[in-house]
Simulated assay, not measured.
Amino acid sequence: MKAVVLPDGSVSLPATLRERHGLTRGGEVLVEDTGDAIVLRTLDQAVARAQALSRRLVAGQAGASVDDFLAARAGDTGAE
């Protein structure tokens, strides 16, 4: 698909892309410069990507889950 860079520097995305990804007027995207490309992600896409990366990084590591963290915190006495 083709997008247009307007004279003021804004980019006009095709309506089909905006609709498919839930981008309405005033919707925000994150812009990533990968060095050889520009990647646009919705905030939901960026969160999902970060969550997937986190899951891969801690997979199989004991004590790495949120439940493990909360259990450890519940065991803290607060004494220093």
Rank of each mutant, 00 (worst) to 15 (best):
D76S: 14
D67V: 02
A3C: 15
Q45W: 09
S12Y: 06
R41A: 09
P14L: 03
T42R: 02
S65E: 13
G75W: 00
G63A: 10
T77S: 13
G9C: 02
L70A: 06
R20H: 01
A79C: 01
E28V: 14
G60A: 08
T24H: 14
R41P: 04
S65R: 10
E32Q: 12
D68N: 08
A74C: 04
R55G: 13
P14S: 04
A3N: 07
L40I: 03
L53V: 06
H21Q: 02
V4P: 00
A71K: 13
M1A: 08
R55K: 15
K2S: 13
V66N: 13
V39Q: 14
V29Q: 01
L30R: 10
A46W: 13
Q51C: 06
T42L: 01
A62H: 12
I38R: 04
A72N: 08
L43W: 08
A59E: 14
E19V: 09
V11T: 05
D33G: 01
R56M: 08
A50M: 10
G26Q: 11
L23G: 04
E80S: 15
L23C: 05
L17N: 10
R25N: 10
Q51G: 11
A50R: 13
L17A: 12
R56S: 14
V4T: 09
G75T: 05
A64R: 03
S54M: 11
H21D: 06
S12K: 08
V47N: 08
H21R: 11
G9T: 00
L57M: 12
V5A: 03
L57T: 10
E80R: 15
D36M: 05
R73W: 09
V66Q: 10
T42V: 05
L57I: 07
R25Y: 00
T24V: 11
G26P: 11
E19Q: 15
R18H: 05
G26K: 07
A74K: 08
L30C: 05
R20D: 05
E32Y: 08
E32N: 07
L53K: 10
T24I: 06
E80A: 15
F69K: 05
K2M: 11
Q61F: 12
R73Y: 04
T42H: 03
Q61Y: 07
G27Q: 02
A15K: 00
V66P: 00
P14Q: 05
R41V: 06
D8Y: 01
G9E: 01
V5G: 02
V31W: 03
A62P: 15
A72H: 10
Q45C: 09
V66G: 03
V39S: 04
G9L: 02
L43R: 15
G9M: 01
G9K: 01
G22K: 07
T34S: 14
S65H: 09
V11L: 11
A52K: 11
L30V: 06
D68A: 15
L57S: 12
Q51V: 12
G9V: 01
A50Q: 13
V58D: 09
E32K: 06
R49A: 15
L40F: 14
E80G: 15
I38E: 04
A52C: 02
T34K: 08
L30I: 04
V4A: 09
V39A: 03
D8T: 02
P7E: 05
A52F: 00
A50S: 13
S12L: 07
D76T: 13
E28A: 14
G22T: 06
E32H: 12
